[in-house]
Design a protein around this nucleic acid. Sequence first.
DNA 1: ACCATCATCTTGACATTGTCAAGATTTTGG
DNA 2: CCAAAATCTTGACAATGTCAAGATGATGGT
Lengths: 199, 199
Amino acid sequence: MPLKKYHHGDLKNALIQAGIEVLAKEGVSGLSLRKVASRAGVSHSAPYSHFKDKQSLIAAITTESFRQLYEELKEAIAPFSSDPKRQLTAGSLAYAQFALDHTDMFKIMFSGVLEKEKDYPAYVEATRQTFGQVVQVIQACQDAGVLRPAPPEVMAVSVWGQVHGIVSLALEGQISHTVLDRHSVRELVSLAVDQFTAA
Amino acid sequence: MPLKKYHHGDLKNALIQAGIEVLAKEGVSGLSLRKVASRAGVSHSAPYSHFKDKQSLIAAITTESFRQLYEELKEAIAPFSSDPKRQLTAGSLAYAQFALDHTDMFKIMFSGVLEKEKDYPAYVEATRQTFGQVVQVIQACQDAGVLRPAPPEVMAVSVWGQVHGIVSLALEGQISHTVLDRHSVRELVSLAVDQFTAA
DNA sequence: ACCATCATCTTGACATTGTCAAGATTTTGG
DNA sequence: CCAAAATCTTGACAATGTCAAGATGATGGT
């Protein structure tokens, strides 16, 4: 039986889950192996049976985070499968919303805490899938004449970069009061996307 | 005499400089107070005479980094004071180049390592200046009809976000091979800016 | 059913690090 | 010239990541 295998059960996933919880409660800087282990109810060294080191656990956490982001994007664009422009807007807003709802998750995904991403195939695959989804929407927009014809991947970098940049700067507190007092992050993202599809 | 005041001299600035060096050699995760102190030739506790804690030193380092970025942007756009569109392109490329030349500096500036930015007035002021410069160029572009008329700060968020996002994603290794094999980061930024000013 | 082997987990240890307290040393103002 | 303040050192402590040694539960072959 794969459930409750033995000693603990599925400790590996329990640690990932515990890690996500610690992340949400204490932020990126509060994420320690020992806290995660303790929260999972095991000794401080137990994680080393399932993860090579802290980086490896972080890789697992970020991978899971990317999967969640992927799912949210998927759900957000699903209702508009016949309207690429709406998909672009909905996807962008979902991206922003994910960042606002899971701030520390978003930060650990994009803040360079994970140091040798290529060493983690599952991570690479999860990000590839997410990016692929973006490219698909872009391409649909281009086919529909909503976005100008350019290499879709290049266009995707522009659009994704746009949304990602605005959200990141907002989370970092780099966007001035005079702007944020008047416009929510979602609104800024929305305006930016409109600008893109205005041509 | 303000030079070589006493024991060490200007230890505060020496620590900031040493911090920047450690950052360049060992990355964000390798930046420790003790290494910085050692590199400055003082004991491990000496920094506490000049900085409340590690966060405070990081604030000083990022502040200095923002000042450098500000200067580079200033130099980059200076030659084109009569051509806003060129200023926008040159500034964006300079932003990207700064990130590529000083990767870890850029990361510590925008990776959420500094936790309570508002507690550091010099930091707030340095970022405000940098952002103000961006807004100025945007406004000049709008006045020249290069960018569509919208609230300049909002437009600035879009443009800055665009550039920042592309650069960030590139540094994080999030941009796929198939794109980066064909286009340099500078090229991607350039294309994105062109897209913006195409209207 | 039994036992050897393996995977999993615990305990204990160590080096690194951020931080603080106590004290030494140097500068400076009166 | 001395007292007070600023600066720096030494020593300590707790938290953390990591490793080694060993305990313990699971598994497969006979």
